[in-house]
Amino acid sequence: MALLEIKDLYASIDGNEILKGVNLKVNKGEIHAIMGPNGSGKSTLASVIAGREEYEVTKGSVLFEGKDLLALAPEERAREGIFLAFQYPVEIPGVSTANFIKASVNEIRKHRGEEPLDAASMMRLMKEKLALVEMDKSFLSRSVNEGFSGGEKKRNEIFQMAVMQPKLAVLDETDSGLDIDALKIVANGVNKLHNEENAFLVITHYQRLLDYIVPDKVHVLLNGRIVKSGGKELALDLEERGYDWIKEELEAGAPQNS
């Protein structure tokens, strides 16, 4: 059974249809990259998977470990093991990162029927994961994302992901606005967390991130549909040639899988 199986998914926001029949299957242990030009529906796909309520699914299904994901509230999806790294992480003044993560981890543990972590174990877990994204302990006492630089916010997303240990992580343009050093840190975090039991869906505009996170599969999302899928070399093709050749191929009726 696939970890994530999206079938013929249509979704709209404010009456505008953005996704127009997406099909995608992600197995445990795999890293998939979704690429596409602006406005192709990449972030919408991430939002629908995570459960953002402004998006209306008009057709199709999303199964997560065989369960109907679309029937679940965002928090239930998180507890089932889905994590979305935000393109624009939110600042929450007055709530310390440590308290926020504690609340989050314990909600997930509760869902799994586990006891809440005691303070010492929680601290150990957080320190260990901080090291992974090369963040200082002082981050924990700062308010969530408040006054963080763009790079710090993205690293904080990866840090949260590391602590929550999701089965499926969706990275929504995590590379945007990162300098090369921050990009390496983020990629390194993902690579260390990646194992045979989890999967990643990396949404990106640029091939750059894929130099550091090597995908098993690359999909091209165009006008709300996945129009081409291939191996990691497809990303390099896109970097070199842009998207126009795919559009031309489509118009010429060429096969969609290389």
Partner: peptide
């Protein structure tokens, strides 16, 4: 802010929390 609420919910906190 709906975006703030969604951020917290996507981390496993229920809507009320």
């Amino acid at each position: 802010d709906e975006e703030h609420l969604f951020y917290l919910r996507s981390r496993g906190l229920d809507a009320a929390n």
